[in-house]
């Protein structure tokens, strides 16, 4: 990443959860898309204030669980019917009862792996650094700060405009990081 398109982030601090929530609603209504809210504890209703949709992770996990299930059945069928048809304790080659433990396990394995890696991909992780980490103000997010960040790769981003807008929403402190 070169110096010209290095990302900038405007960080604004608000007084309370209620103000943060109101600010999030206004920012969403103003048309910003690359913004985020940070608080020391989860705030109920923030998802809808920010206009966040429910994560699609469940569908990814479901898809991979089903893939694991199918793969396990095909694998076992191929091994015990096609490749190595052996009679074991007088049971049919395709003994689906015996396949179920492996099928269950493989479905769970695929689902768990999909949950972890899907979560990383949806969160755009791993990434090595983010401009907010150079900010002193941002450290308050884990202590007593109710913060909004707007990133420079937002199509509507204009540093002075953003600052003015955040002040008009009642931000008591503003910092630019990056």
């Amino acid at each position: 990443m070169n110096v010209q398109n290095k990302m900038k982030v405007v960080i604004a601090e608000f007084d309370s959860t209620a103000e943060l929530m109101r600010a999030a609603e206004k920012i969403r209504e103003a048309g910003y898309t690359k913004f985020d809210c940070h608080s020391p504890f989860p705030i109920h209703g923030m998802d809808s204030a920010m206009g966040l949709k429910r994560s699609g992770l469940g569908y990814i996990v479901g898809f991979f669980a089903f893939t694991g299930l199918t793969a396990a059945i095909i694998l076992q069928w191929w091994a015990s019917v096609v490749a190595y048809p052996l009679v074991i304790s007088g049971k049919p080659f395709f003994s689906y009862q015996a396949y179920l433990p492996v099928t269950f396990s493989l479905a769970v394995l695929f689902a768990a792996a999909a949950a972890i890696f899907g979560m990383l991909v949806l969160n755009k992780l791993p990434r090595l650094n983010h401009p907010v980490f150079s900010s002193e103000l941002f450290k308050k997010a884990t202590d007593d700060g109710f913060l909004v960040t707007i990133e420079s790769d937002d199509p509507k981003f204009d540093e002075s405009e953003v600052k003015k807008y955040l002040l008009s929403l009642g931000a008591k402190r503003i910092e630019v990081a990056g």
């Binding site: 304790s89 049971k91 009862q97 015996a98 433990p101």
Partner: peptide, 12 residues
């Protein structure tokens, strides 16, 4: 239920 059935089915 399956565990109960499975062991009985296997041992036969």
């Amino acid at each position: 239920a399956f565990s109960q059935y499975f062991l009985i089915w296997y041992a036969n």
